[in-house]
Every structure is written in C-alpha cells, then in structure tokens.
C-alpha cells in the first residue's frame, strides 16, 4: 500500500508543483543581466576582425564591440561580457534557449528569421553582400562563367540559399561543399577543393588574407544577395529590444556629431543641446530606456563611435582594410541613419 500511495503522490507532485521549464524569455533580460553582472554574448569566435580572441585571450572585433557597447550601456563597464563561440547552426537555438542574452555574430536579417524564430533583430549595423571568390588561375571574371564549378559554402547560412537561387536563376549547375567551421571551409577552398567560395564579402577578404598570397584570389563583381547584418535578441522583451536598438543608433549618432572616445569628455561641456541630451548632461533619455543617464557617454568613452568600431576592427586601421561603402553615415552617402535622440 505504501508503494502505491508513493506513486500517486509522485504523480500529483510532478504535475502540479514543478514549475514549467524555464524556456521562454522571462521578459526582463535587463534585470537578469544586471543581477548577474555580466552580459552573455554569442559571437563567432573564429573570424578575426569580427570576433576572435587575440593572443592574450581577449575577444576583439566589430561584433564584439557591439556586445561591449551594450555592456557599457547596461552595466557601465564594457569589459563585463562573457563570450560564447557559436557555429552558424548553433546560434539561433542558443539565443532561443536563453544560453546567451544577445547574438552578435555576422547574422543576416531575413524575413523568415525575423518572423519564425521568436527573435528580434536590432538595426542593421553592417551592410554587406554575398559574393563569390575564385582562384585567379581559373581565369574567370564573372560569376556567370561558373557553370559546373564546385563551391565552398558555409552551411545553414543565408548564403547557401542565395547561391542556390543564383545558379538556378541563371540555369547553371554547381557542386556544393558545405563545412560548418568557417576556418575549415576556408582551408578547403584554399587547398583547391572548390573552384569558388561564397560568403559575405568581408568573410572572403578574411580568407584571402589568411592565404597570404592575396593576388591568387579574385572576388567576382556580381552581388549574389544582399546581406544586412544585425545583432539579435530573444523575442518578447520590448525593453531589452529597445536598449540594443538604441545602443546601435548611439554609435551612429556619436559619429554624426563627431563625438569619439578621445573627445567625449570635452563634449560633456558642449553647448549643443542635442549633444547634452545624448550624453546625458541634460534630459532623461537613459532613464526612459531603464538605464543610467550616461549610457551613451559610457558607450562612446569605452568602446567608441561607429567610425572607430569600423576602422579599428575591419577598416583602414585593421588588416582587412574594408571600405566603408554602404556603411558610411547617410551624410556621406551611406545607409546608417540614426533617428532623432529626443
């Protein structure tokens, strides 16, 4: 009898007392992050320039700086970030399950991802495009000459589909080689396993750089697909969504007003009411976001404005030497356009 009652009690207990499995976002990432004292950021970890640990094990890069900017705004300290390296296939489940607070990992914004994954994308912080790089020895100068070629493609990426669409559209055949690890994929291409490699342009530049002989590889002119890259957070948390969104805008805004990490302290004394509001000298923009009023000051002081983030990681001051191109501010003919900070 005792065993029976035990089983019955167990059954009742399990169905009533145990709380639902904590899978959903609790709608309050900000509190969780502040209580934890760390922002947990999912990044690639194998793409120097975007996110990779340096020789001392400190994570650096364009994607990393946006994690740091959010940490500066939320915790007041850009160094309070824990990074988790994620493959393309791991990134969304990792974000959905709550393992990371924020995904900043060269992720392309698409309709399906934005709608069906239960995640929200912050504003695009890098406009890129899928391109194809080929071995120069092949003497190919257009992607339309690639009928029958072997292509190295990152799996599960938006590029995989873009390439399939491109070859279909032009009635061409290709043989795909997909390897999860971007470094392995690059090696496969460099060792001539594939005639061409498809990726977003900086990814190709990075692979070419790694080969040393940059002249041996040509990036073909065709734009296969648009690749707007954006940070993402779990859906259902409007407050944190607003924070990440306006952190991205803040880096644009700082560049627009010429505020950078070297002059931000002087700018605190500026008479310009817009700059005063932005840096939290006046107004309550930070409080409206649930942050301290100097949130934008902390971002610029500790991480820098968009121009600094770009140039130091992937632009003129970095080995990749990418052009700003579409990633210029709107004032200079680019696409980055921060809405008014008021």
């Amino acid at each position: 009898m005792r065993t029976i009652s035990f089983a019955a009690v167990l059954a009742v207990t399990l169905t009533t007392i145990v709380p639902p499995i904590a899978m959903s976002a609790d709608g309050d990432s900000l509190k969780t992050i502040q209580a934890r004292g760390d922002l947990i950021c999912g990044a690639d970890g194998k793409r120097p320039g975007f996110s990779a640990p340096n020789s001392e094990g400190v994570w650096q890069g364009f994607d990393v700086d946006f994690c740091r900017a959010v940490a500066a705004a939320v915790l007041g300290d850009a160094d309070k970030v824990k990074y988790i390296a994620l493959s393309p296939a791991q990134r969304f489940p990792s974000l959905q399950s709550g393992e990371i607070d924020m995904l900043s990992r060269v992720t392309t914004l698409t309709l399906t991802r934005a709608v069906t994954l239960g995640i929200n994308f912050a504003p695009v912080n890098f406009y890129s495009g899928t391109k194809i790089m080929v071995h120069k020895a092949l003497n190919v100068d257009s992607a339309l000459d690639l009928n029958g070629a072997s292509m190295c493609i990152p799996p599960g990426s938006s590029q995989e589909r873009a390439i399939a669409d491109f070859f279909r559209r032009h009635n061409m055949e290709y043989n795909s080689v997909v390897i999860d690890n971007i470094k392995e994929l690059g090696d496969a291409y460099l060792q001539n396993r594939c005639d061409g490699m498809a990726s977003f342009e900086p990814g190709l530049a990075l692979t070419r750089l790694r080969a040393g002989q940059t002249d041996d590889h040509v990036i073909l002119p065709e734009d296969i697909e648009k690749e707007p890259l954006a940070p993402a957070i779990r859906g259902g948390d409007d407050q944190f969504f607003n924070i990440v969104t306006w952190v991205v805008y803040a880096t644009f805004e700082a560049e627009e007003w010429g505020i950078d990490s070297t002059n931000v302290d002087d700018m605190l004394k500026s008479d310009n009411p817009k700059i005063q509001r932005f840096l939290g000298v006046s107004g309550d923009l930070g409080e409206k976001l649930g942050l301290s009023n100097d949130w934008a000051y902390q971002i610029v002081k500790q991480v820098g404005n968009y121009a600094e983030i770009f140039e130091n990681n992937i632009g003129a001051n970095a080995p990749l030497k990418l052009e700003r191109g579409l990633n210029e501010l709107w004032l200079n003919g680019g696409l980055h356009y921060p809405p008014p900070f008021q």
């Binding site: 399906t112 599960g156 997909v178």
Partner: peptide, 14 residues
C-alpha cells in the same frame, strides 16, 4: 546531420 543542421538553420525548428 549535415543536411539536418542546415534545415535547422533555415527553419529554426531545432
């Protein structure tokens, strides 16, 4: 697994 991983990434239905 390789094909499935891509499908997971495209659909998000892990």
């Amino acid at each position: 697994v390789s094909v499935g991983n891509t499908a997971i990434n495209q659909t998000g239905q892990a």
